[in-house]
Design a protein around this nucleic acid. Structure first.
Lengths: 411, 411
DNA sequence: CTCTTTTTTTCGAGCCTCGAAAAAAATAAT
DNA sequence: ATTATTTTTTTCGAGGCTCGAAAAAAAGAG
C-alpha cells in the first residue's frame, strides 16, 4: 500500500539524506551538503546542528587537503564514532568471525576461529556464534545494550526478510533462524544476509564510479555465488536472497551438482567440478566437499602449461560461466562483473572461454561493457558490506526513523 | 544523486497519490481515500477540491452498490474523462493499430490495419504509423494539440529510455527512433515500449490480487517474449527493455534460432521451432518467418492424439521453457506465470514437460507458487497496458509534477 | 587595522498537514 | 412534520518545515 507523505516525514527524510551523504562522502562541509542534497543553507544548518547536538555527527578539523583560501573556512562534518556500536558475524566454510565496528565504520575489535562446519550440528553452530559474540563483547568492553544492530553474513541462501539461513553448502543443517535466536539471546536487532550480496554492497561503497547502477559480483570458490545490483538496488528474490547463478541450468540433465540436481553451472565451474573433471572422474561422481586453493592453483598451473585434462576442465568451467552470464545478460543487459574469491587465482585460464561463450549469446551484443575486475580476497569485502548494511540501518532507523532507504532489501 | 525533499514536493506527491488511488480503485469517496492514503480528512478534502476545480477529478453519482445507510452519503470521485486525451499505437507482425483514449481510460476511437511488416522498409513503417495517427485524430475530431501523450508498443527490443525500437522480428529494419520521429511530427511526448512489458502492466492493473509484487508474463507466439515484474516494479534492462527470456541459452551450440545464434530457448519453443521439429526438418534449418495459429492448432491436435513427431516437438518445447523458467526462478525465486498469446491454444500439450523440467531445477523448490494462467488474446492487454502507461505519465507529470511514479521504468 | 571573501546562522514569510469543531446531508424516531 | 442521530465533508487555527534574505562569523589580503 502506498502511503501519503506526512508533514513530519519531511524532516526525517532530509535528516537521513544528510547522514547518508556524510557516510558516503567522508567529511563534507555544510556547503558541500547543500550542493549534494539540493536543500537550502538554512535547512542544512538546522539539521546538522540538531545532529551534532544529538551526538550523531561532529565537526572535525579538515585535515590535509584544505585549500588555503580567503573567507571563513568550511567546517567538515564527520560521523561521531561513539554514536553507535554495531556487530558483524561472518560464517563461511570452516571459518567463523565476528567484529565490532564503531559508528564511523572503523573496526574496534575482531575475533576469528576455525570451525569444522561440515560436521557441526545445528546447536554447534548456534553455540559457536553465541559464544564468540559474548567473548567479543568482553574484549571490546561492551554489553549487549551498547550494540545497536548485528548483521550476519552466511555462505548460502537466506530468506528475503533476512531472518534465517535457509540452505548452505557449509553444513548439512538447514533452516537455522539465526536472527530470531540471536535477538532473543542478546536483545539487539539482527539480520542474516547472503555473503555475495554483502560483497556487492561493499564494492558499491568502495568504488561508486565503477559499481553504481548495474553490476554483477561472482564469488568463485567451491560453489559459485552471485550478488546483483540493478538500478542501484541490491537484488534479492521474492522469498530468498535469490540470485542463485550457480544453479541456473547449463546443460539439462548434465553433470551432478553438489545440490543433488544435474546440469547446474556450479557442476561445471565450481572448484569441485573442475577438480573432478581434471582428475578424469565421471561428471556424475559425488563431488568432494572442499577443494583447497592450493590444489586449484596447481590445476591452473597445469592448464597454463598445455593441453591436458586440467586445461579442458577450465575451458568447460569457463563455458558454463560464460553461457550463464550470457543468459543473465539476455535478461538484464550486460553489466560489469567483479570476480571475487579463490577463483581469481585461476581466472586467466578461464577468461577466454568465458568471453567466447558470452559472444555466442544474445547477451554478448554490447560486449564493450563487459569487463572483469578481480578481487582475490572476499573476506574484507564481506566484512565491509555487513558493517555498512548494519550502519545504514542504524542511520535510517535510529537517527531518522520513517525514512525508506535506497538499498533496503532486508535491511 | 539523491535529492532532499523540498517543501512543495509534499503537496505534489500527495496529489499524485490521490490521483493514483482514484485511477486504481475506480470511484472512491473522500473517506475511502483517507484510509487508502493515510492522510487526514482535511488534506484529502483540500487536495480533492483542488483537483475538481482544475478539472482532473469530478464527483460522480455513486451508482448501484450504494449501501443505504444513515448519515451523509459518500460522494464518489471519478476521473474527469475530458481532462486529457492520450494515444496508443501497437505495431505487431503484419498488424498496426492506433487508439484514442480519454482520461478515464475509455476507448474513444480506434483504427486497425493489415500491414506487411516483413517486407516493409523503414520509411514504410514510419509512414504507416504517421498516416494512421493523422487519420485517427480526424476520426476522433482532435488535433495534435489535444493529445497529451502517446505510448507505442512494439514487438521486439526497445531501449531503456523508451525512445526507439532497437530490434524486432517483424521486419529486418532496426534502430527506428519512433519517439523522436513522432515527437517532431506531432509535438506531444512519445514513448516506445516492449509489448510484453505492456501486458505485464495491464495484468497488474486488472488483477492486483494475483499480479502484484512478483510475476512473469510469457508471450508464446512465433517468438517468445517476457514481461517481468519484481518488487512491484516493471523490470527492464540497463540499456534495453530487457527480459529476453526467449534468448536465454537452453542448449549451448544447439538449434538455430531466428536471431542467428544457436541454442536459444526460442529455437526450441517458438512456433517456428515446433513446426520445424514436427515437420522432421533439421534443427539447423532456416526457420519460417511466420507460422499461423491454425497450423499450431493442428499440430497441437496431432500431439494430443498420440506419440508422433508433433508430440515430441511440443515436449521439446516444454522442456526448453521449463528449464528456462527454472533458471529464471533460480535468480528471482518462483513466481506466478501468465501465459499469453496464440501459444495458449496448445499450452495443455506443453505444460507437463514444462513442470517436469522446472522440477529438475533449483527453481522448482517452491513449486506450490508456480501456477500458469492463460490469456489467449494478447491484443487487448497490450492496448490496456499502453493506455495505462500513458495515463499514469499524464497523472504524474501534468497533474502532479515532481512525483516519482512507482512503475516508472521508461515512463 | 580595515576591507573583502566565504561560510554559517538567524529570522520572518509562506506552505502544508493535522486535529478539532462546525457544517452538511442523509435516515430514524417521535 | 419535526427533531434526533449518524456519517461525511469542510473550515479554521496551530504547529512544523523549508526557503530566501540578511546578519554574523571567521578567515586572508591590503
Amino acid at each position: 500500500m502506498t502511503l501519503g507523505v506526512r508533514h513530519d516525514d519531511l524532516r526525517r527524510r532530509n535528516r537521513a539524506m544528510v547522514i547518508a551523504a556524510v557516510r558516503r562522502d567522508g567529511q563534507p562541509s555544510r556547503t558541500e551538503l547543500v550542493s549534494r542534497t539540493g536543500l537550502s543553507h538554512s535547512t542544512i544548518s538546522a539539521i546538522s546542528s540538531d545532529l551534532i547536538a544529538e551526538g550523531v555527527l561532529r565537526p572535525v578539523k579538515s585535515g590535509e587537503n584544505e585549500v588555503v583560501r580567503r573567507g571563513r573556512p568550511q567546517i567538515s562534518l564527520g560521523l561521531e564514532p561513539r554514536a553507535a556500536t554495531v556487530l558483524t558475524v561472518v560464517l563461511l566454510l570452516n571459518t567463523l568471525s565476528a567484529t565490532v565496528f564503531d559508528y564511523a565504520g572503523r573496526i574496534v575489535t575482531q575475533r576469528r576461529q576455525r570451525l569444522s562446519t561440515l560436521n557441526a550440528t545445528r546447536d554447534d553452530l548456534i553455540g559457536a556464534v553465541t559464544t564468540m559474540i559474548e567473548a567479543l563483547l568482553v574484549d571490546a568492553g561492551r554489553t549487549p545494550k551498547d550494540v545497536m544492530r548485528l548483521t550476519m553474513a552466511v555462505q548460502g541462501i537466506t530468506d528475503s526478510n533476512a531472518r534465517a539461513m535457509l540452505w548452505t553448502p557449509i553444513t548439512p543443517e538447514s533452516d537455522i533462524p539465526f536472527a530470531d535466536i540471536l535477538e532473543r539471546r542478546f536483545g539487539f536487532p539482527v539480520t542474516v544476509q547472503n555473503d555475495c550480496n554483502m560483497i556487492a554492497v561493499a564494492l558499491r561503497a568502495r568504488d561508486p564510479e565503477r559499481y553504481r547502477d548495474n553490476f554483477v559480483t561472482l564469488l568463485l570458490s567451491n560453489g559459485i555465488g552471485m550478488g546483483l545490483v540493478l538500478r542501484g538496488e541490491l537484488f534479492t528474490g521474492a522469498y530468498s536472497s535469490g540470485g542463485e547463478f550457480g544453479h541456473m541450468i547449463h546443460r539439462p540433465g548434465g553433470a551432478l551438482c553438489r545440490c543433488g540436481r544435474h546440469g547446474c553451472i556450479e557442476a561445471y565451474a565450481g572448484n569441485y567440478a573442475i577438480q573432478r573433471e581434471a582428475a578424469g572422474r565421471s561428471d556424475q561422481a559425488e563431488p568432494d566437499a572442499d577443494v583447497d586453493p592450493e590444489t586449484m592453483l596447481r590445476l591452473a598451473g597445469d592448464a597454463r602449461a598445455g593441453d591436458g585434462p586440467a586445461r579442458a576442465a577450465f575451458i568447460r568451467a569457463g563455458e558454463a560461466i560464460g553461457y550463464g552470464l550470457g543468459s543473465l545478460f539476455a535478461l538484464i543487459d550486460p553489466a560489469p562483473v567483479a570476480i571475487v574469491g579463490p577463483g581469481t587465482l585461476a581466472f586467466d585460464v578461464m577468461e577466454p572461454s568465458i568471453r567466447e561463450a558470452i559472444a555466442q549469446t544474445a547477451g554478448g551484443q554490447h560486449d564493450a561493457v563487459i569487463s572483469f575486475d578481480l578481487e582475490a580476497d572476499e573476506m574484507p569485502l564481506i566484512l565491509e558490506g555487513c558493517a555498512r548494511r548494519a550502519l545504514e540501518a542504524v542511520d535510517n532507523e535510529l537517527f531518522a526513523p520513517g525514512y525508506i532507504a535506497t538499498m533496503q532489501a532486508g535491511a
